[in-house]
Write a protein that binds this DNA or RNA. Structure first.
Lengths: 211, 211
DNA sequence: AAATAATTACGTAGTACTACGTATTCCATC
DNA sequence: GATGGAATACGTAGTACTACGTAATTATTT
């Protein structure tokens, strides 16, 4: 029985690109395609693929939530996260939220085949470059941003910093003293191993605290 | 005689996507595809298409220079600029530098067909939404906030700011004085209408200057 | 060749952030 | 009821950024 594949991406061009690649594979059958999250969820109710190629940046749904809800409703569906983002942060985030694979859109047909093959065997696939980056990170211990846990207050303050509030404005907004905000800020900077405001805002983005 | 088409894009997925769309059109023949600027220039020496679908953001060549040199060497080739960038600035820049059309990668097959058809008649094609934006701009004389144009130097400096470089470090790196960096920084802040470093970094992210 | 835009740079002041250390209160968990 | 994390706050200094204004030099475009 051929492997049933589905594709979800908000660009018809991308869907057709994958479709074209899939056609050259034996033992693969394209079950359906979806141009947005809504369509995807509707079609999943009718039939479930073995593997779902899922763009994690569709306008109407964010990839993490989609991934979560799909894997909880249809545990048999294995999800391959699709993206252009070469960030280890996203890889971790997606794999922690139910994805079984992480593939870049720059992948060539050989890589795609290997990725699908790996998932079909029940194993995890991660893009080679990202795999190396993850490895390097865990060895050097650097850029372990997502492992560091900020407290609720710290998260709140980090978000406000990223939204252009000054320390004084944050203090006023949260009814705490300027010094307290400064203390929090210093603690956050140390936890995240960043040097200045720019680094804080960067982390806020990586952590999806701001859109 | 069928219309000869060529595609240049650094993503195989995109090439296949267009290929797939083109197959459904009668009177269109895919002459060749190219995965980078180098390959494109080499293949153009052998044979010239009527219409070239050209990704303007390839790693080894920038779209503007490629466009310029191709139209001057092969004036018969009509270039359709391909991009994800919904910025009127790029449209103008490309059309001034030899492109005959401007198409977004989010285009559906109908739009693609219309675009190719328009170019084959010797007319100019511009993505509908961008056409409206250009029109609105020329009437109001204003750009939307996301379309503020930074100079090359400003863009460079904004990227460095987002990468946690201090003004002094930027000055050292670019061999300019601290005051110059401060001036640039102030100008950028005014152009982008932001209050502080956080706002600058936020804009850098929105503009995809950092990943 | 002229006009325009970009890049460079300085003066002066004020504001905001960074970096240490120290320390109290609150609250949950053992 | 003891321990420890979280949140609160201050002192002191130094560094970095913001906000005006002005202006010369170099590229680019017309």
């Amino acid at each position: 029985m051929p492997l049933k594949i589905a594709i979800a991406d908000d660009h018809e061009l991308i869907i057709r690109g994958f479709e074209s690649m899939l056609q050259t594979f034996t033992d693969c059958e394209l079950l359906f395609t979806a141009i947005n999250g809504e369509t995807l969820l509707r079609k999943l109710q009718q039939q479930q693929p073995d593997i779902l190629l899922l763009d994690i940046q569709m306008p109407d749904h964010n990839g993490i939530d989609l991934c979560k809800s799909i894997t909880s409703t249809y545990p048999a569906v294995r999800i391959m996260a699709l993206t252009n983002l070469e960030e280890t942060h996203y890889v971790k985030k997606m794999l922690r939220n139910g994805a079984s694979g992480y593939l870049l859109k720059s992948a060539d047909p050989t890589t795609l085949l290997k990725a699908i093959d790996t998932l079909s065997k029940g194993e995890q696939f991660i893009d080679e470059r990202l795999q190396k980056m993850l490895l390097a990170e865990s060895i050097t211990g650097k850029r372990k941003s997502t492992q560091v846990l900020l407290t609720r207050r710290e998260t709140e303050i980090l978000r406000l910093i990223a939204e252009e509030y000054t320390n004084q404005e944050i203090a006023d907004k949260l009814f705490i003293s300027l010094r307290t905000v400064e203390t929090h800020r210093l603690n956050i900077s140390q936890k995240l191993d960043v040097k200045n405001t720019a680094g804080l805002v960067r982390e806020a983005y990586l952590r999806n605290l701001v859109s």
